Simulated scan of single mutants.
Amino acid sequence: MNLPQRNKIKPFFVNSIPKSGTHLIRPLLEGIPPLQHHAFIYPGKLDQISEHQLILSKMTNNHFSNGHFYYSKEYETMLNNLNLKQIFLYRDPRDIVVSYAYFFMKLENTPTYHFFVKNNMDFKQRCLALINGIDSLNRVNIDLWYRLFIDWKNKNNIPPITFETLIESSQSQKKC
C-alpha cells in the first residue's frame, strides 16, 4: 500500500535520559498514524556506535527508534550523517533518583537491587546512595551521570521535551 506523500514521515530518533519518560513517549508516538517503532537502543556508549549506526540506518519512512545515547560529538555526527532528526527527552534529576529508588527494587537480578537489599536500605537511603554514587558498583553520582546526557538539550535543531511537560499535558486532558 502506497501512502500519499503527505503521510510519509522521515525516520527519527527519540533520545532520553533513563527514567525520563522513555516508555511514556513511545506509545504516544505510536498513536500517530502511520508511525511505527523500529528499535530501542541502550546504552549509547562509543564502543557501540557502529552497531547503533547499522540499526538506525535500516529505518525507513514512518519509523522511529528510541534509546539512551550519552552525548558525544561522535554520536551527534553519526545522527547527522544518517540525516536523522532527534527529539531529546529529559527530567528533573531529583525525580530520576526517586524513580530509580523504586525501579531497582523491582529488578531482583541486578547488582543495584542486591546492594540495596544486602545493606537493608530504606527508600531514603537508596535515594542517597543514588545521589552520591555507589563506588562498589561503579555507579557514578547522579550529577556526573546526568551530565553524560544533558548536552543534547542545547543542540540546534533538537527539540528538548521534559517529562514534566508530558505529564502536565496528560493531566490537562483528564480535566476536560
Rank of each mutant, 00 (worst) to 15 (best):
F149G: 05
N154R: 03
H68R: 06
M105G: 03
I32E: 08
A101Q: 01
S72I: 13
L46S: 14
S72V: 02
D143V: 14
Q48Y: 15
R126I: 15
I131M: 14
K124F: 13
E74H: 12
R26G: 00
S136V: 15
H63V: 03
L35T: 04
N80L: 09
F115V: 05
I150F: 08
S50F: 10
N120E: 15
Q36F: 05
L82D: 07
L166E: 12
F149L: 07
L3A: 08
C176I: 05
K85R: 15
N80T: 06
Q86M: 15
P27Q: 06
N138D: 14
K45G: 07
Q53L: 07
Q125L: 12
S20Q: 03
A129C: 13
T60E: 14
Y113M: 05
N138L: 04
Q86A: 01
L46M: 07
I49Y: 12
F64A: 01
F104K: 03
P160R: 11
S169T: 13
I41W: 08
D122L: 02
P11R: 00
W152M: 04
I96W: 00
H114C: 04
F64Y: 15
S169R: 10
I131A: 11
I25G: 00
Q53P: 02
P33A: 14
T22I: 01
I161A: 01
Q125D: 14
P93K: 07
V14W: 02
F69S: 06
Q171M: 12
S16N: 05
L166S: 04
F116R: 00
L35D: 12
Y71C: 06
T60Q: 14
R94W: 13
P27V: 10
K85E: 14
I158G: 01
P159K: 13
H114T: 11
D95S: 00
I150H: 11
R91K: 08
K175I: 11
I158D: 00
